[in-house]
Amino acid sequence: MANRRLITKAVLYLILILLAFMMVLPLIWMFLSSFKTGSEIFAQPPVWIPETFQWKNYLNAFNLAPFGIYLANSLITATAITVIQIMLSSMIAYGLTQLEFKGKAFLFQSMLLTYMLPAAVTYVPSYVILAKLGLLDSLTGIVVSNISSVFSIFLLRQSFLKVPKEIVEAARSEGANDWQILWKVMCPMSLSTIFTLAMITFVEMYNNYLWPSLIVKSQSKYLITVGLNQFFTTQGTFQNQWAMIMAVNVISVAPLLLLFFIFQKWFIKGVGDSGLKG
């Protein structure tokens, strides 16, 4: 019996290793290929490990387009959006859970409705509004148009509802006002939700493509995703540029993967048991 169990376990390991390998294979392939020479790229059967690592692929990529700026733009906007969005969403969530006002139910229901709808519907009018505000082709425009998220509000509301009433009442009886209760009681008590939400928002905003690609036009404002696709469409036609394109991909993927593997333990746990499923 012990033997059979050992075999089952070994088979399970084998399956899992195979599956995990398949999942990360495109990432590995991308990474290895970014160091290959042109002939290694086109080799048949495929060459896995490049003979000498071609670091110059990265240098060439940086020479062809300002990926440093793209990367910085993406990191700055994603950070700004995450911070502001969570602050604003906490405020609304606080209002929805702690304050009494007319039209609360109506506000909540209208938000519920928006949550169900594809964001794309809003693109045309939002584009016009941004144009009217003079924020087209600017990082501010990207930030401003992304700072409200119904998803964040729901998630935080869910989490705030779990804070025991007595704690809020105790804080109030100690003389804390709403502002203090929000930042000193509700938020610290919802830290794990906030952390998860921040990670998800950051990842989504960093990876965002369609909307930013519509509103930024000048190269100095490109986000990494926009710059990447631009680079791909201009260079991709010359097939021997694959190695360099992969190098650029690595650059764009690296920050998030790094972040993810540092925080993966909390991230995976947080996503799993945050009130995400409503």
Partner: peptide
């Protein structure tokens, strides 16, 4: 991990 990477 694929979820974390940019779709582009």
């Amino acid at each position: 991990s694929p979820w974390v990477t940019p779709m582009v």
